[in-house]
Nucleic acid binder design. Structure first.
Lengths: 348, 348
DNA sequence: CTGAAAGCGCTTACAG
DNA sequence: CTGAAAGCGCTTACAG
């Protein structure tokens, strides 16, 4: 056992020591095409020939090189998924959903993180195109995707998720950020709040702007004049968010409620609020695990990450199956989940 | 804009309408090899020739087909990562760490979930081998990996993570499940508990067995005779875990503390305990988000998922760089994080 | 500095 | 039922 698994010397070429169809053909005493037929389960091979070929395959440990196959067939049966950060819990269910759809279509998933850097997004996307993935699901970091035009023209199916494509016309699947934020903020207003803070992601990110817009709309609907100090957009790292939270709460006339623009902001704000003596009402965009077990439970505007991924991937394969629908914008609804923190009345 | 992005007819072959080096060469009036030189930044091209080639590349929107390149070069500059479930928070940081190391080595990451199904694991792994990934990082679902022997012999670098390989000798990177569980249970014993329950994953999973072993060791060290009803291994779905928890707690002489075998078990047990009138002490294996904000805070045995991924990926690339070290078993330490739930005394 | 020929490991199109 | 030839889009090894 240890012997068969002992590490071999690495050859210069990784394939150098791999048997090919040619080797199998030679050993079985048949032509190349006959091996190809057996390997691919094509008809037109006598049982006896098939057996001889199969024996050669087993004896040599032959495994078809799909890399070569792809070169002839045209399709690679793989799709690329470019997201911001594989470690962000929001992308876990989304990735899985994309993978499941890909699997159902016999495709593999190549995954990459842009780290919210437009240059890195482009580099990754183009690397995937060079590998000739059949399609791309992209959570964009940048706001100019004209670099993709030649690829799309060449037939690479493309769907954007969570945020729209920039400066090109492409399929996009989004959550209703505007409506979700408006509902969440209206919910706080309905519980008596008028001084409400908004802490969100960087303003160059589409969802951050949309959610801020939803916040403003809800405030305006209620006839509340928003003050500048109530709004803070920026990085979602804990330090920045904690700072923003504390600033809002220590103002002479502090906010009595906070609305958070995404899951990472939520985690930090909740942590800060937990350390305060007086309760501050809170609603967050995106659900987070264990939100129901905190005291109070965390009220959130939930989006369905898995459904975003599933919808995008299905749309992608529809493109690959030849559908020539015009690019479409699909918006999925959000859902307000009341758990306590959003139903607190204004303090004092 | 809308025009350039409007969806083209899908050709039979995805590459049919893509310019190749041959097209570029024809347009620039040079040989194929000269185009190759320019595309790959090789020396030995006059500035003037280079400019002509570059113009042709830009005019045609040429992008090198790495799929073809790979066929000649031998290496695909891609590695495969097979894990259980992309949506499990434990695998997020692990995947990201593997991706970062891959990126540093210029490789792309192909990701797949086995859904804890050995057949699906094998299917995925072999599909990745057929694509000729340079290496594999595998969180195994099955316990027999002899099917990988021909691949490893052919030069596919392989590292197992989180659980050891079955029936083959290969690199493996693990957390110290035994030691971590023993420490966690000893911690409960140190706080006065003697009747302690263990709820873990299915017994065919290596980490489940190791953690159970750690539990038994701690109990034995303390001279406590373990009763059968205190141990429950099985699926980690909420229903099964809730049932197991309630059964242990409703026994005539119930346990006063529970040790959970992984993150999913922890989430469910914590949820059940939160609904009980009397406090039950708890320690979980794996840290979970917001564990510090619950009442009481959740004491856990934390493992470093990112470090597991990083270590495995680095080991993989060392193999690919030609290191011929013998297969090794690397065990990373765990860390007990005290937050309150594990320091509760036995009730009544 | 430049390029024609051969070949990577398959599949396609065709002929027997 | 079977197989020889050509070709997918590149790189390698070599010659000029």
């Amino acid at each position: 056992m240890a012997e068969t698994a002992s590490r071999p010397e690495r050859p210069e070429s990784r394939y150098g020591n791999r048997p090919t169809m040619k080797d199998v053909a030679a050993r079985a005493g048949v032509g190349l095409k006959t091996v190809s037929r057996v390997v691919n389960g094509e008809p037109g091979v006598t049982p006896d020939t098939e057996r001889r070929v199969q024996e050669a395959i087993d004896a040599l440990g032959f495994r078809r090189n799909d890399s070569a196959r792809v070169l002839r067939k045209g399709r690679t049966a793989s799709i690329g998924l470019v997201l911001e950060d594989l470690a962000d819990p929001f992308y876990g269910p989304l990735s899985r959903a994309v993978e499941e759809v890909a699997r159902a279509h016999g495709a593999l998933l190549i995954n990459g993180s842009s780290a919210e850097d437009p240059d890195r997004e482009q580099e990754l996307v183009l690397a995937l195109c060079a590998r000739r993935v059949d399609g791309l699901v992209v959570i964009p970091a940048g706001d100019d995707h004209r670099y993709l035009e030649p690829e799309i023209a060449a037939g690479v199916a493309t769907v954007f998720v969570d945020r729209p494509a920039g400066k090109i016309d492409a399929d996009v699947v989004l959550s209703d950020s505007f409506g979700g934020a408006r509902d969440g903020v209206a919910h706080l207003i309905a519980h008596g709040h008028r001084r409400i803070g908004f802490i969100g992601d960087q303003p160059r990110i589409h969802t951050a702007i949309e959610r801020l817009r939803g916040y403003r709309a809800a405030m305006e609907d209620a006839g509340i004049a928003v003050e500048e100090e109530w709004m803070s957009l920026g990085a979602t790292d804990p330090d920045r968010v904690e700072q923003a939270t504390r600033t809002m709460l220590s103002a002479p006339d502090p906010v009595t409620a906070i609305f958070a623009g995404n899951n990472r902001v939520t985690v930090t704000v909740v942590r800060v609020l937990a350390g305060l003596p007086r309760p501050v009402a809170f609603v967050g965009f995106d659900d987070i695990e264990l939100a129901d077990l905190l005291q109070p439970g965390v009220t959130v505007v939930a989006q369905d990450a898995a459904q975003l991924g599933r919808t995008a991937a299905e749309r992608l394969f529809r493109q690959l199956d030849g559908a020539s629908d015009a690019p479409e914008r699909i918006e999925l609804p959000t859902r307000l989940i009341k758990r306590g923190s959003g139903e607190l009345p204004p303090a004092g």
